[in-house]
Design a protein around this nucleic acid. Structure first.
Lengths: 126, 126
DNA sequence: CTCCTTAGTATCCATTTGAAACCATGTTTC
DNA sequence: GAAACATGGTTTCAAATGGATACTAAGGAG
């Protein structure tokens, strides 16, 4: 059995595709990119919008996204200083796949929750 | 500014969509589902195929996927015992979105790596 | 002077992860 | 009969990560 329709074997260590996939498989990164898809936002605005994210994790995640070329960080010398985060054109190409994933989550979460309840009920019986 | 085209606000805590998304945003879960998309596999076969995963994490991740109704676990009373994991019909509907994500990773990893190198070079100068 | 805003960093502690050892079962090897 | 190997895991413990909270700096309002 081969690795499927992909030119690279994503199951190998060191596969660059896998490195990229590791970054995308991040709860906060996905939520932040979805939030920024509607337009640039500032640090504290993101923090208020994406509920539950801490300042530290927000800062770290934005830095990772910036390093990956998915987000730009622009500082305006106002007072207090304004920092605006925006998606890059590269991230725009990622918008459709990510939104497809959220659409799946939306339309299938009933099935997932039902499966969880059935599983938990069975586990209790064991 | 509203929450976008979604009926639920994925930026709210407690949003079921967000709970589902949290599960999907898992590096190993995504890789395992991709691997199983070609057909059922056994525990140690998965372990050998998806390089770098530990037995513990493989076991834990498969349990989560089973609980979410994405993977079935079938025990055959051979000797030694054979345990086969397979995607459910529900997981089959997830195959396309996930493969779209890997296709993106494949075709854009050059850009991501270039961005990383540029970022790191700039960070060294600072 | 005190409190508020901005965008973070620093610190501490809990949870998660990863590597390796161990377990139970049964077959083959020496 | 004892050692080694296969299966599919669980246990153990250190290390990395995540999250809550407090703090910084620079300036404006009262």
């Amino acid at each position: 059995m081969d690795a499927g329709p992909f030119p690279f074997d994503v199951y190998e260590d060191q596969c660059p595709t896998r490195m990229v996939l590791d970054r995308l498989a991040d709860k906060w990164a996905l939520l932040l990119m979805l939030r920024l898809a509607d337009g640039p936002l500032r640090f504290n605005q993101l923090r208020r919008d994406v509920k539950g994210i801490s300042q530290k994790v927000l800062s770290q995640t934005l830095k990772k996204l910036e390093r990956d070329g998915l987000v730009t960080r622009t500082v305006y010398p106002t007072v207090p200083v304004t920092v605006e985060y925006a998606l890059t054109p590269l991230a725009q190409t990622l918008r459709e796949p990510v939104e497809a994933l959220t659409r799946w989550a939306e339309s299938h979460m009933d099935a997932v929750q039902a499966a969880q309840q059935a599983y938990d009920a069975g586990a209790a019986a064991r």
